[in-house]
Amino acid sequence: MGNNNSYFRRKKLNKLLNKKSDNKILDFEELEEELKYYLPNSSEDVDRQHMYHFFKRYLFQGNFSSPIEESLIQGKCKVLDIGCGPGTWLLDLANKYERSYFYGLDINPVFPNEIKPGNLKFIKADMFDGLPFPDNEFDFVHQETMSFIIKADQWNFIISEMIRVTKPGGYIELLESYSTTNGIGPILDKLHKAHLSSCIQRGVEMKIIPKLDTIIKFNQNTPIVHRDEKFYILGPNGGKIGMVNQDVFLGFHNNEVAMENLSPLLGISKEEYKIMITKDLIEEIRHTKPEYLLIKFWAQKITNNNNNDNNIFLN
């Protein structure tokens, strides 16, 4: 996916961050207009997701934390990535572990259909309709950065589906970002509040993210959940990593769809929003240390009994 320029940009970023590690558009009418902001809809959005993949891989020094490396090397693994986007995570793994098999699922088909490894298959489907696979199908089921899309009352269903299609002895793994209020300036604080307001309007509750391990544990087949957290500083005061993430962050906000969605919530015009993102926010970040968090959860499925009709509510 993408053109030659995007390829070389990803190659350059990979070299920078990889010094130590080796990695139906149907129903859109039913989605609220704001959701366009959180899904890749252009080559620039796709490039941003490619960059963000390498950023996350560098922070965690790898593409996964579950103990599946040996199985991947031996070729015993069947891997599913839910909400795969342009498929960067899968392309990274499929090229490295040629004897294993990889599947990507997304409602928005921005993934490559032709130029991809033979052990990788992409499927256009809506995860909210249930995963289109039988029980106990995959050795590893993975999902990343869906916190702006999954509503508060949908997390239990999505996680239960992940566990359902995972084989006994296999693993599920989730990685999500979470913003803190530490070190932020007034402009970024306003932007955070606009995001929260947008999320609330769509039924999305960001406070659930640090508690996802509770939902995973609630399923009787995944009683033990492992957790890893990585903090980083946005902007120049966070070093090279901070600057890479600043590029991703600004790219996420500096587009027409973002302006249409967030400027009314901020009470400013599109022109004022543009100035805020491209000038005022950049200047503020130079003098502050905004702290962000990536949280990873992983758990092993221990039994075949994966019927769990209970629900969980988190305040």
Rank of each mutant, 00 (worst) to 15 (best):
K289L: 14
S21I: 12
D27Q: 11
F218L: 01
G242C: 05
L90C: 10
K78A: 08
C199Y: 07
N23C: 05
N14V: 13
P117L: 05
C77N: 08
K36Q: 06
W155M: 00
F28W: 13
N237V: 10
P132S: 02
D45E: 06
G118D: 14
K78I: 06
A152Y: 02
N219L: 06
G87Y: 04
Y7N: 08
T303Y: 04
Y232T: 14
L72Y: 09
K211M: 06
D189A: 04
Y101A: 11
Y273C: 03
G130V: 04
F133L: 02
W298H: 07
P109L: 14
I107F: 11
G251Y: 02
I163M: 03
Q49L: 15
F55Y: 03
G183T: 00
M162S: 01
E272V: 11
E32M: 14
Y37F: 13
S71C: 07
F8H: 01
N315A: 15
N237C: 10
E291W: 02
M276T: 09
S43R: 00
Q300S: 10
E161N: 09
N304Y: 02
C77P: 05
P223R: 00
Y38M: 05
G104P: 02
G75A: 09
D135E: 11
V257E: 12
I209W: 10
Q74T: 05
I200Q: 12
D309C: 12
Y37T: 15
Y58A: 11
T303K: 06
S42W: 07
S269C: 08
K151I: 01
N41S: 11
I73C: 03
W298R: 03
L175G: 10
D213A: 07
P290S: 07
N308K: 11
